[in-house]
């Protein structure tokens, strides 16, 4: 059965692993250069004491490539689900070969176990290789982008650690399940794609933040923790955002009044304490709002409430999410076994 499974799987396997090999060549060719650039830049910025700027500049310079690679890692499980999972059983049902193979001296249960096991394992290996290669390549970028785009934030989280392996396993089993239930390849592919895309959207929005109860803090707004201040004279709105902790994933970020209720900053601040200093000839404008702005906000009793997952919870969240997907994948596998034994003919 192992031989037959591998024989039937070889074209699809070659396509995905071939693609990964091409990706690997690109990463191997560009990775060392990237690491060297980062090392040199870091040395020179340490001498000049402006490493914050260097980090964000280096990260945004390479974000083009990095973004594409992250997109590949995020798309890979979906592709595996659609092209490995969905046709796994439907191809047999559509060509009638299930009636050939189920009448050899092997039970359907064993037949399905070998197919699910081997191809599912390959799916997880493919995702594992891809994420390992990317993590090696992107190591300097993850260090440089720690304040810009920490790896715990939704986009990068899904392309790091062990989560992509869990996604690949789940997407594969989802494809097989859709195939077993619909019995036809194309609808199964479409369903797999739609459901899995939904999983990838829903998870970071509503599930991941609560896998571990997030931390919450109400802090005084200062020059140091301010990450963004928006003054919109037209709409008469003023908003601030603070950074929770270095490398953290901020889930909520809102201004509260002295009693702790969500509140808007009075727009009068925009033309008062927080008005930007008039540009002086020959001088760069100062980088942020004047210090009296923060004093005034504090005097009025406004603070910033942040809900966040700190950077050191990266692996905790990774394992929790992978575990959740593993449970889902096992549940769907059970359904596949039941349906194949009882409902298919």
């Amino acid at each position: 059965m192992i031989w037959l499974t591998l024989r039937q799987f070889r074209v699809q396997a070659a396509a995905v692993f071939g693609g990964l090999a091409v990706l690997g060549v690109f990463l191997a060719a560009t990775g060392p250069g990237l690491a060297d650039d980062y090392g040199r830049g870091l040395a020179s910025c340490t001498a000049q004491h402006n490493c914050d700027q260097f980090g964000s500049r280096f990260f945004s310079e390479h974000w083009g490539n990095y973004g594409v690679l992250v997109a590949i890692i995020i798309a890979l499980p979906g592709l595996i689900g659609v092209f490995w999972g969905a046709p796994l059983i439907t191809r047999e049902l559509e060509t009638g070969t299930h009636r050939l193979v189920w009448n050899q001296s092997i039970t359907r249960t064993r037949w399905l176990a070998v197919k699910l096991g081997l191809v599912g394992l390959s799916a997880m290996v493919a995702a594992g290789i891809a994420v390992l290669a990317l993590s090696w390549w992107a190591d300097p970028l993850d260090k440089a982008g720690v304040s810009e785009q920490p790896r715990i934030t939704p986009l990068l989280f899904g392309a790091h650690g062990v989560v992509p392996i869990g996604y690949a396993g789940l997407a594969f089993v989802l494809g097989v399940t859709a195939g077993v239930l619909t019995r036809r390849t194309l609808p199964a592919m479409a369903i797999t794609l739609a459901v899995f895309a939904a999983v990838q959207v829903v998870t970071p929005l509503w599930i991941r933040p609560h896998l571990v109860p997030p931390k919450s803090a109400t802090v005084t707004i200062t020059q140091q923790n301010l990450s963004q201040m928006t003054l919109d004279n037209g709409a008469d709105v003023m908003e601030v955002q603070t950074s929770a902790a270095p490398g953290a994933w901020t889930i909520e970020n809102r201004t509260v009044d002295a009693s702790g209720h969500e509140a808007a900053l009075p727009p009068s601040l925009m033309n008062g304490a927080c008005a930007p200093a008039p540009p002086e000839a020959g001088h760069e404008p100062p980088p942020g709002p004047p210090e009296k702005c923060f004093t005034e906000i504090a005097r009025l009793g406004f603070k910033q409430k942040v809900v966040y997952q700190p950077a050191d919870r990266f692996w905790l969240l990774q394992w929790a999410e992978t575990g959740l997907f593993a449970v889902l994948a096992l549940g769907l596998s059970g359904l596949c076994f039941y349906w194949t034994r009882r409902r298919l003919s």
Binding site: M1, R7, T95, G96, N103, Q104
Partner: peptide, 30 residues
């Protein structure tokens, strides 16, 4: 399963597999 042979309607075979591979399939599964 080993005691009963079945040639299903339309004699399904794997289109992508060779004749020899079908015999190998038979040998491995029976």
């Amino acid at each position: 399963l080993a005691k009963v042979g079945y040639v299903a309607q339309d004699a399904p075979t794997y289109a992508g597999l060779s004749v020899g591979e079908h015999l190998r399939l038979g040998a491995r599964l029976n």
